[in-house]
Amino acid sequence: MNPLKRITLGLVAILGLVVDSRASISITIASPNTTSGLIYQSDGTSLNTTGFARVGKITGTIDFSKSAVNWANYQYWNNIFSDVNGSVGQGSTPSTWNFNSSGALSGSATGVSASAFSNGTLLYLWAFNYGSVTAGTYAAGGSFPVFTESDFTSGLVTQWAILQADEWTAPADNLSKSLVINQITPTDTRQIIAGTDVGTGVAMVPEPSTGALMMIGAAGLVALRRLRKV
């Protein structure tokens, strides 16, 4: 076969493969049971059903110093975070990423673009203590950010957790992936970017003022104990 014909036929073949570009993946998140893989409030109490989660990839270098909960840091993370469904319409079926009353997280996103989340892309969970997403209200193609500055200044969004596990990678085209909360390595600060391991799950980090008050309180208790000893 002459080379020109081969090239022409090759182009025909490439065009014939357009179908493959429709490939999608599916992402599911799992808290295996009611006693492990849970997301807690910063004080260790159950998150219950009020909470919100985003699952996606992070583009660019992560600045680990921006883990504190505030509007500026939210904007930083929001700018580098691409949800598996939502902002660029990746998910044909929106996820419900819901918390149950124990703080167990569940949900699936199907029809996620395999080209936007190529095989091996690290996936992250960004969980909040505010917002309650139910099926149908979080439409594919919906806009982000889902929170506004007033959500922070008015004290609604006061805690979050940003998590990742080595196993949390996007699958190959036309396959599924389950992100299991228990797969997070508690001692790995690269995986618990914001949050605290509490054995049966991860507690969110509080907003700095709350955290500072808690530290002051703890310091006061220590001082009081010392005074009493004297």
């Binding site: 599916s26 295996p32 196993e167 699958p171 036309n174 599924s176 389950s178 299991v180």
Partner: peptide, 10 residues
């Protein structure tokens, strides 16, 4: 693997 491994049916 329970919870983690997945099966896709087309």
């Amino acid at each position: 693997g329970e919870y983690s491994d997945s099966i896709s049916v087309y």
